[in-house]
Amino acid sequence: MAGNNTKILKQANTYLVLNSIISAESITIEDVVKKTKLSRPTIVNIVKELTEKNIVFKSGYAEYTGGRLPTLLSLNANSYYTIGIDFEFPPIRMAISNLKGEVVHKRGITVERHFSRNQIIELMFQELDGMIAESGIAKEQFIGIGIGMLGYLKANQGISVEIIRIPDWKDVDFKQLIKERFGLPVYVQNDIHMMALAEKRLFLPDLEEDFAYVGIRPGIRSGIGLAMQINGSFYGGVNGNAHLLGHMTIDVNGEPCTCGSRGCLELIAGEPNVIKRYKALIGDGEDLEHIRGIRDIYARSLAGEQTATDVLDEVGNYMGIGIANVVKLFGLTTVVIGGPDSELYTNLIRDHLKKNIFKHMSGEMNLIVGRLEQDLYPLGSCFLVIDQFFKEPTLNL
Rank of each mutant, 00 (worst) to 15 (best):
I145E: 05
N231E: 07
S301F: 08
V326T: 12
Q388T: 12
A303G: 08
T14W: 02
K279H: 10
I43F: 00
S26G: 03
V335Q: 03
C382I: 08
G60R: 03
G223F: 08
P256W: 09
N98T: 08
Q306R: 10
R93M: 12
A133W: 04
T258P: 09
T346P: 10
I147R: 00
D168P: 10
E286L: 10
L379E: 01
P378V: 02
N156V: 04
S59Q: 09
G263I: 05
L153S: 03
C382V: 04
E180N: 15
G240I: 02
M195P: 03
K37L: 13
I22V: 10
R165L: 09
M149D: 01
I386V: 13
D191Q: 07
E364K: 14
L197P: 01
R217K: 12
Y235P: 08
R201M: 10
E88H: 15
V104E: 10
S135F: 07
E102M: 14
I43T: 03
L372V: 12
V188M: 03
T14Y: 03
G236R: 06
T333S: 15
N239S: 11
Y345Q: 01
P378T: 03
I294K: 01
I147D: 00
A308V: 00
E102G: 14
K10T: 12
L123D: 04
L150W: 02
M319R: 06
N241P: 02
K175H: 10
L244A: 14
E255R: 09
S261D: 09
N396R: 13
V326N: 04
K354N: 05
N19H: 12
E286T: 13
A2L: 07
E25P: 12
I46M: 06
A138V: 11
Q126M: 12
Y345C: 00
H290I: 10
C382D: 09
N253H: 13
E25S: 15
I291E: 05
M365E: 02
W169S: 02
I230R: 10
Q388Y: 11
G254W: 06
K10Q: 12
N118L: 06
F234W: 07
V56N: 05
V17F: 08
